[in-house]
Amino acid sequence: MPDPILSLKKLDAFYGDFQALYGVDMEMAEGEVIAIIGANGAGKSTLLRSISGLMSNESDQVNFLGKGIGAHRADEIAALGLALVPEGRQLFPSLSVEENLLIGGRLNRKGPWDLQSVFDLFPVLKERRAYPSTALSGGQQQMVAIGRALMANPDLILFDEISLGLAPVIIKSIYDALPGIVGDGMSAIIVEQDISKALSVSDRVYCLMEGRVTLKGAADSISREAISHAYFGID
């Protein structure tokens, strides 16, 4: 493997006394799309929070573009080119749709994404650009959240449960848009409970259970039985 864009070495994470991750190792190459699956409470979101800097770790536990960023603050990591689409969308309610997108683009990193290209990807947002972000449907809000992350032109984008709480038809349209996003070399980590959706867009998959990696492999070669074993811990 060439120099990985992101690698995790024995990553532990704690909430107070509670340990959520136990020595997670992970490597991903540039341009790769990785899916992380696992049941509720398996540590998926914690993993993303650790990578994006919302949770602090030891510096060398998280390595991004050759830099130990485990102890960096989230805003410093964002400036290096890492964006997160947070679980539950988490738009800024007092900002309009357009302003939410502009906030995402305030780092002024170079790349293909700007207001225009996000509106091309999700035309409905262009119509609603002046609306307060709270006036949108869940699916549209998810589009804003994705657009907001893209505006930063990140090298690596993390998606946390983007299908959560959305109607199947909306999920489909969002997943249909994903290849257009990661197509031009952007690396991505997709956290998802919907296993088949996750497998359909990813190159490789990691399965977490109770804070540990229980399975990893190429998305197209992994068997259903192996997944359910790794997912639930049963045969």
Partner: peptide, 22 residues
Amino acid sequence: SLGRAFRAVSDNQDIAQLMGLN
């Protein structure tokens, strides 16, 4: 854009951090 950043931080500090706002 400064005001926008203020409002974003005021709405949700964590997510605003993700946008590169210190």
